[in-house]
Amino acid sequence: MSFLVNIIAALIGDAASDRVVPSAGTSARLTVFASAAMAFLAVFALALSLAAGRVAARWSEDLARNSTIRIAAPMAEIEAEVATVLTVLAQTPGVVSAREVSMEEQRALLEPWFGAGMPIEFLPLPRIIDVTESPEGYDVEGLRLRLSAEAPNAILDDHETWRSALIAAAGRLRVMGYVALALIFGATVAMVTLAAQAALSANVQVIRVLRLVGARDAYIAGAFVRRFALRSLIGGGIGTFSGGVAILLFPDQASAESFVVGLGFVGAEWLWLLIIPLLIAFVAFQATKAAAFRVLRGMP
């Protein structure tokens, strides 16, 4: 709590302290711009991370409760095997429903690859049964054994293999988003440090005079820290607002079902946008403070 109070006090500062250090000029203005750019990028990195998290959760949930049985039997036996499989599934605990995927649905699934109007009736396509599980699921191995005995051409696919790969991919995407966020804040530290060092170097004579008349390091550093932290806060606010507006202008998620249009914030996730400018200002505060004390330690 006292840490926060110290930061707020340092940001508010006093007018006299601000007056004795001349305006930091270009470096301070560049800090506003750099902070705005970093905040804008941070909004997108955060949106990416959150969207990846949502996608991973959705894929995991949807696929975990669905499985399919593919029956590729000779034409003479296929109807009987489909009926057998449906009967077996009806008797299997943990299976909520099972239905055969219709020819029309199969056509829709193949349309992206074969184009519209493809006479798939003449293709030796397997029959597919869509199985919906209860939250507790069913005994996969038990079902597999029973199917091999009663419908040898039926192959159970519980999506485990590619579900794991998809979830892993989404998880990595989320980590990438967080890494991007960390890099953005790291770059902010570097830029603010450079700008602060430039301002400090330009004011070495001022700092020397202040030291000679009895100013303490914290007083001198405070004037620079306050200036850069406030400018970063302003820049961060502008960048975050712009990033938020850009995210809002993305196509509505309900209108299309792809990952890209899912990039955005949902509900309370928007509150993260309040934190970004504060984090940028905090990072600038610490970076300037470190740079200022490093310069001051080298002075008598």
Binding site: D14, R19, V20, R208, V209, L212, V213, G214, A215, R216
Partner: peptide, 28 residues
């Protein structure tokens, strides 16, 4: 200290320069 080269802050006026040791006390 009265320095030979005086060492003022050129962006502050004379009165503010004279008051500099008071300003750096960090209080009103």
């Amino acid at each position: 200290v009265v320095h030979q080269d005086c060492q003022f802050l050129d962006h502050l006026d004379v009165a503010q320069n004279i008051a500099l040791p008071l300003y750096v006390s960090g209080r009103e």
